[in-house]
Structure formats: structure tokens, C-alpha cells
Simulated scan of single mutants.
Amino acid sequence: MPALGKVITRVDAKSKVTGEAQYPGDYNFDNQLYMKILFAGFPHGIIRSIDTSQAEKVPGVVVIYTAKDVPNNEYGLGSPDQPVLCGPGSNKEFGDHVRFVGDQVALIVAESEDIAIKARGLIKVEYDALPVISDVEAAMKDPKPLVHPDQGTNVFCHFKIRKGDSDSALKNADVVVESVYKTPVQEHAYLQPEAGISFYDDEGRITVVVGGQWVHEDQEQIAHALNLPLDRIRIIYPAIGGAFGGREDMSVQIVLALASYRLNEKGINRPIKIIWSREESMVGHHKRHPYIIKNRWGATKEGKLTGAVIEIIADGGAYIYTSPKVLGNATILCTGPY
């Protein structure tokens, strides 16, 4: 192979070190609008009302959208269990429930980011509080309260791998070592917070310029939520700005497309831009799963491993999305190279 032993320059190295590379937040178009999102800020509850009347009076506010404005108010990888916007008027059962502080409640589109922020602060939301579920083991044992009332359980999946007779292996081992390990929730903290811009292109497609990890999945989730064919949605990934698994889920993709779609219905075809602050990023996007890992390893006096029993519990948080894939990988690899 001619490349072996040679130093190969990354194709994107020069553009990134010189500042020429364009990240989602760097994209701007003439006559663009700006969006901000009202997050729930509430860990678990039912939204009884959303009052946007005062926010709509702020000069420069173009439109405010809530759950009633989402054509198909759901998304999710494998299981569409997450509302695009939480609140009354959703076509999804229990779409008025919020399940973590980062649930999205309303979109504000305005002539400037400052105007959108001001209007966001004037939106009034009334909640009925529900019990907070913070202990994953307790949530598994007692199905009440349910994170998702329509599921009947708080367990989203259960993988089992059995090979040989582990009970006998441990019983006959010279030594058995047991331990419980816990890993915390982890923020990915990539350099570019979530950002993007959406518009209708010359072929009439809703185009979203955004950072992500699964471009076709972004397209599918947007099309599903808007009840549109796939070929009506175009996703462009420029330089990503870091991800580390933290951009596998949706953040601004669907809501940007939703705003462009609804404004187009009003005859308004202006690009819409959003950049999350670092605080909004930490509140609004999913995190690396915390784990409880229970180990029992058996070995001979000579140090040969004879068997292992491992139980892994992953806290999937409020919504499933990639959790079955992540837990599946952990289950397959839990014994390491052995």
C-alpha cells in the first residue's frame, strides 16, 4: 500500500487551523430571522396552559409556535417517544407532559436574537407537578410513577447474554471478586454549541444546515415530525465542531425545519438561525449515560479466570433514542477481551 509509512495531511486541517472552515454558527444569509427556544425548566409535570400573549406583543416578534403547531408531534430513534414541543394541543398522547428540564415548550422567531430572548421571558407556563424520578434502580422496581404512562414500565429494554454455566464456574473458583462500579452522567462539552440555519432552497426543499452525526437520521426525524416526504428535506453538515456522541440525538434540527415550514405557509420565506448558549446546550441536549455495573469474577489460584456474572444498568433518562444501542454495546463488551 503506497500510503504506508507516509504522513497524510488531513483534508480539513488547513481550513480549520486558518479559520476558513465554516461551522453551523458561521452561516448567515441576508434578511434572516432568529430563533430562541423556551425550555421547560421543570423536571416532571403536565403543562396545563401556555400564555404567549405578552410575548407576541414585543416589537420584532414574528411568530411563536407551540405543540399545537407541530404536524406530527413525536420523534425518536426506533421508538418515537419524545414530543418535538411539549404542551396542550399536541396530537401525541401525553404530549403535554415534560420529563426533564430540557424539554422544549415553545419557539420564538424574531428579527433579532435579543428580541427573541426578551419575548421568551414573557411566556407564562402553568404546570401540574409530578413526582421526580431520580433513582434508576427504584424506578425499575416500582413502576409508579411512570416516566411514560402509555408504556406500563420504566424499563425500556433488557438484554441477556448467557454462555456456559457461570454459577458452577464461580462456585468452583478458588477466589471470587465482587464489586459495584458507578459512572456518572457526562456532559460532552464540544466546542461548538448547537447551532443551525434553515431555509427553502431553489428546489423547494426545507434545508437545514446543522452539526450532527447521522445526516440521514436527521432527515428522517424531520420528515416524520412534519409529515413530509424525505425528498422534501435536505440536511447539510458543515464542519461539526465536536460531537463525541453528543450530537446523535435531535437538538435544533426539527424545530428549525418546523419554523421554516410554518412560515412558508404564511408566505414568509426568510432563513431562520439559532445558536444555543453554553448553558442552553448543557440543559437541552442528551448526556452520556450513567451506569451501575455489578461484577462477580471467579478465578483459580494461578490467576486464570473461570467465570463472570455482570449486571449493567444504564439510566436512559427521559427518552429512549440511542439508549438500546448504547446498552447493547456495553452488554456485549462488559467482559472485555475475555
Rank of each mutant, 00 (worst) to 15 (best):
K160Y: 08
V180D: 11
A116R: 02
V185D: 00
N72Y: 15
N72A: 14
V185I: 07
R99Q: 04
K141V: 09
T66A: 05
F159G: 04
P80C: 09
I115D: 02
G76W: 13
L85R: 12
F100M: 04
E111K: 13
V125T: 10
K182I: 06
S179E: 12
V177S: 12
P88R: 10
P88I: 07
F156N: 04
L130W: 03
H148W: 12
T153Y: 11
D96Y: 06
E74L: 10
G87R: 11
D103M: 05
I108F: 10
P83D: 11
R162S: 14
F159T: 01
G78H: 13
F100C: 09
V84D: 07
G95R: 08
G87F: 12
G152C: 12
P131W: 01
K68D: 13
P143K: 14
L130C: 01
T66P: 03
D128K: 12
G87E: 12
G78D: 13
V101S: 08
P80L: 11
G164Q: 07
A139M: 01
Q151L: 14
M140K: 13
I123N: 08
D174H: 15
V70M: 11
D128C: 00
D114V: 03
N172P: 00
V109F: 12
A106D: 13
I123C: 04
P149N: 06
D103Y: 08
S168V: 04
P145F: 04
A116G: 05
V147E: 00
N154A: 09
I115G: 05
K171W: 00
L146T: 03
Y75N: 09
L122S: 08
N91R: 12
F156C: 15
Q82A: 15
V147H: 00
P149K: 09
G78R: 09
R120K: 15
H148E: 11
C86Q: 04
E111P: 01
I161W: 07
Y127T: 03
V155G: 04
S168W: 05
F94V: 00
E113A: 13
D81M: 10
A139T: 02
I123V: 07
G121F: 08
L146K: 05
K163A: 13
H148M: 09
D167K: 14
V105S: 07
P149A: 03
P83N: 09
S90K: 08
K171M: 12
R99G: 05
I117M: 04
Y127C: 02
L107N: 14
E178D: 10
E113Y: 00
V155Y: 07
E93M: 05
G95K: 07
D167S: 12
D135P: 02
K92P: 00
D150M: 08
V105F: 06
